[in-house]
């Protein structure tokens, strides 16, 4: 992926947290994300079941 430009201070977009290389790696790590897929689906299902009376 192409990286565009470096962040500059004193601009609004420079204040929020920016993901580190490690964070980006885990976000696309196949095995970790496979686990996340099921974990998030479980969390969604809990909400879905609760929402149906």
């Amino acid at each position: 992926m192409e990286e565009k430009k470096e962040l500059r201070a004193y601009k609004e977009e420079s204040y929020p947290p920016y993901p580190t290389k490690a964070t980006k790696f885990w976000r696309r790590n196949f095995i970790y994300q496979f686990f996340k897929f099921w974990q998030l689906n479980y969390k969604i299902m809990r909400i879905v079941v609760k929402g149906h009376t």
Binding site: R27, F30, Q33, K36, L40, N41, I44
Partner: peptide, 11 residues
Amino acid sequence: VGEMGLAGHWI
């Protein structure tokens, strides 16, 4: 929940 990742696209 608020999570970013490949899993979100799969879901």
